[in-house]
Nucleic acid binder design. Structure first.
Lengths: 356, 356
DNA sequence: CCTCCGGATTAAAAGGTTTCAACACTCGAT
DNA sequence: ATCGAGTGTTGAAACCTTTTAATCCGGAGG
């Protein structure tokens, strides 16, 4: 039943050139060719030059797969991103690339798109491919799959989430603090009723940012009723727009004067909705986003946002992985960063504020 | 000298469980285990059940590498993106994922970040890994590397660029038409002096979009002097901001009343610069972007932009690859899409226009 | 002249899967 | 009883590298 595919049929039916061919053409054994590739210092200058010339001439492409089978692990890292279309994650990935580049390892990006099934499929493949290490921002950090993979021997670093077990390294940013500084800032600006625009509360991120918001209210002597929840199904731009329309529909007396969004995509959608609904920002509604993606500053009412050290996050995660794969005495570590608030025009009444 | 790494040391020093172990535990030969995996219809119901149970019990993870070595190619696709941080490319990638998902093949994303060296490194790795197929938006579509790879047998599809040889399939969008409709629209709005904000002219995209702009001018009986070139080094948000400051510095008499940007990142940067320089959009400066990324609509002065069928582009590219890898009678094809203009507030004087 | 030594090279085994020709067995038909 | 066809299963080769122990060789020391 399975139709035979053609795959990479090379034009003239000729086999790919392997080390055997190189060895024959150069008049040496394959072992020597291997040595030229892997331990060049072992081989004499003359033969080495000859072999290298032959490889170039024959356009030899090393078969990484065979090497991989022999030595038992590949030389590839993979990052399974939660949402490839959210600039936050591509920035994190860029940070990982910095480190991977230095270590001369390729980094493959896999996009789970917040689909648990797709994430599981990628993880299964990556394990079958015996990648050297996996970086992941998981849909659910509590999934037993993560644990199993680490236990079976593939190093796995959790990114922007806190692991449930101590079997892996992780890097994260303190989301409670993030929520707290965002809302404290809004309180400082005189706001007393604040919308919280976020995805489902079973997402750890959302829950913790909201928790921080409540803490700020408490610190100011205000009750949790001052926080108006606007829950969205997803966390994309369109969802922020929906939240905006719901917000605008509230009676003026109870309508919040400010909104804290669980990410910048939501905030941008909200901002856009405000424009088309005739709500002025920040006068009618102040808005704080989260992540400080590039487009937050580029919005024409530049967005106040909680900045996470995105690139740094990626770099650090990759460094932990590098350590885990090279240092036998490696101990798992949990690294936590602290976010900072970037104040811009979407919350600041007055002339355009200086970016801190 | 090369420090021996530890890689994925499995905890108790135990070897990974392979088909041999499964076979032994289930009391069958490895050939049968292989059949259960690859041709389940060949094996009797009873043994199949027994083998499957054993695999589950032993937590068998198939060694894709060995399979790969034997059959000569892997089951992986890769997309080498030009700029992972530009939402345009992540949207294209999302389209490819649609197709890859259906074909049950994992898609790995590689970000060349417009660095030719990095692109070459990724291509080398991918070829060594014998991926089943490569999708790429190359830094330079004329690079001989692309040709060599295809010639050596790895199918390669060019995305959003036009290949120089007929050795691969490609999908692209007509950039001349895109530039033409953008500028025609500005002319229709009464603009007579138009800035062209784009990267280096040796980028095919930029050159062709500009060419379209000139064509629109010509059709309106206007000379090429009506196009004011503002060349940027990169094509990111920051570069758009720089262009904006240069633009504002021009004497009022010769300052263009409109700008056509070669992508939306530039347009957003320009928009942002206008806000801080006190130029009103569209009254003092109308702006047209290119790509129609999600954030174009989300800008608070929503951006008029030339929409490319991003997701469709990716889907089609992946379909071509699928065909090339499965159909022996495959012929290379060049697919071209036509872009369309999406008019929004950044060019339209009047009440907020309906998005088409 | 023999031995020993060090450096350069080689031959062969190993790694885990797929594939295919060969084999074993059952059942009906001769 | 024998044969043939069909169904399931097996054993061994093949895929291409890396790695290690063994070999080869020229020269120094006895």
């Amino acid at each position: 039943m399975t139709a035979k595919g053609v795959h990479g049929t090379r034009p003239e039916g000729s086999r790919a050139v392997g080390m055997k061919d190189v060895a024959a053409a150069a008049g040496v054994s394959v072992g020597t060719v291997s040595n030229v590739l892997n331990r060049p210092d072992l081989v004499s200058h003359a033969t080495r030059a000859k072999v290298e010339a032959t490889m170039a001439e024959l356009r030899f492409v090393r078969n990484e797969t065979a090497r991989h089978l022999r030595v038992g692990h590949s030389r590839v890292w993979a990052y399974v991103m939660l949402d490839g279309r959210n600039p936050f994650f591509t920035d994190v990935a860029a940070g990982m690339e910095d480190t991977a580049d230095q270590a001369d390892l390729p980094l493959f990006l896999c996009n789970s798109a917040t689909l648990a099934a797709r994430e599981a499929a990628y993880l299964r493949r990556l394990e079958q491919q015996q990648v050297q290490g996996i970086l992941i921002t998981p849909v659910d950090p509590g999934s037993p799959l993560l644990d199993e993979i680490a236990r079976r021997g593939t190093p796995l670093v959790i990114v922007d989430r806190t692991p449930k077990t101590d079997r892996h390294c992780s890097v994260a940013v303190d989301d409670v603090v993030g929520g707290e500084i965002a809302v404290r800032h809004l309180l400082d600006q005189g706001h007393r009723r604040i919308a919280f625009v976020g995805g489902e509360l079973d997402i750890g991120q959302v829950r913790e940012r909201r928790e921080g918001a409540l803490r700020a209210l408490r610190a100011a002597g205000l009750g949790p009723d001052r926080l108006v929840d606007l829950t969205t199904s997803q966390m994309a731009v369109a969802d922020g727009g929906n939240a905006g329309r719901r917000l605008a529909g509230l009676p003026a007396a109870t309508r919040p004067s400010a909104a804290f969004c669980a990410n910048d995509l939501l905030a941008l959608g909200l901002l856009q909705a405000c424009a088309s609904l005739g709500l002025r920002v920040p006068d009618d509604l102040a808005i704080v986003g989260y992540d400080d993606i590039e487009f937050a500053a580029a919005a024409t009412v530049p967005l106040t946002s909680v900045r996470q050290p995105r690139r740094q996050l990626g770099r650090t995660a990759a460094e932990l992985l590098l350590q885990e794969t090279t240092d036998p005495a490696h101990e798992h570590r949990q690294v936590t960063f602290t976010p900072e608030l970037v104040v811009r025009a979407s919350t600041y009444r007055g002339s355009s504020p200086r970016e801190q």
